[in-house]
């Protein structure tokens, strides 16, 4: 818990926070990092293979192959999410499955499945971006600021 939040707690609550912090199971850091590395690397390796496949068999340039590669990876991720496989792997792989674009697709697909019982409009439509939304919002705002600064500097002849 952040320090400024801690200050607003009563002494008893602070004691509880210390106690809960001590009792929280230690995360196996090294194992998590190794797993994230192996699974994340493996997903990127599959991505590289898919990309080369588009280059070799469909005559895409390497830059043009990026779009169908991402779409293919997302498709695979959604199918694996549908069968419940992706989330099983994610329990072991941690950030290894969350950081690649397949994790982004997994968060959308699993939200879509989970909220289906609330209907297609309010359930699926309304919750699909529950996890993926922040990524898009902050990505777009950051990209907007970076691009505005970059473009102004270019127009001003500075870069």
């Amino acid at each position: 818990m952040a320090d400024q939040q801690k200050k607003s707690l009563s002494p008893t609550q602070q004691q509880y926070q210390v106690l809960a912090g001590n009792l929280e199971p230690k995360r196996p850091l090294l194992k998590n990092i190794v797993m994230a590395f192996l699974f994340g690397g493996l997903i990127c390796l599959i991505g590289e293979w898919v990309m080369l496949m588009y280059v070799e068999w469909f005559d895409f340039s390497e830059k043009a192959a990026a779009d169908p590669t991402v779409a293919t990876m997302i498709f695979l991720s959604v199918v694996l999410t549908g069968f419940g496989v992706y989330d099983k792997i994610a329990q072991v792989a941690g950030a290894g499955t969350a950081v690649p674009v397949t994790g982004f697709a997994n968060s959308m697909a699993s939200a879509a499945l989970e909220y289906r019982s609330e209907g297609y409009v309010l359930g699926v439509g309304g919750n699909m971006f529950k996890v993926a939304g922040p990524v898009i919002v902050f990505g777009v705002v950051a990209a907007f600021l970076v691009a505005i600064v970059h473009t102004l500097l270019r127009m001003g002849g500075i870069i």
Partner: peptide, 11 residues
Amino acid sequence: GAGASVPITSF
């Protein structure tokens, strides 16, 4: 290659 373009940073 895909080592950089598949992670979400590339987004």
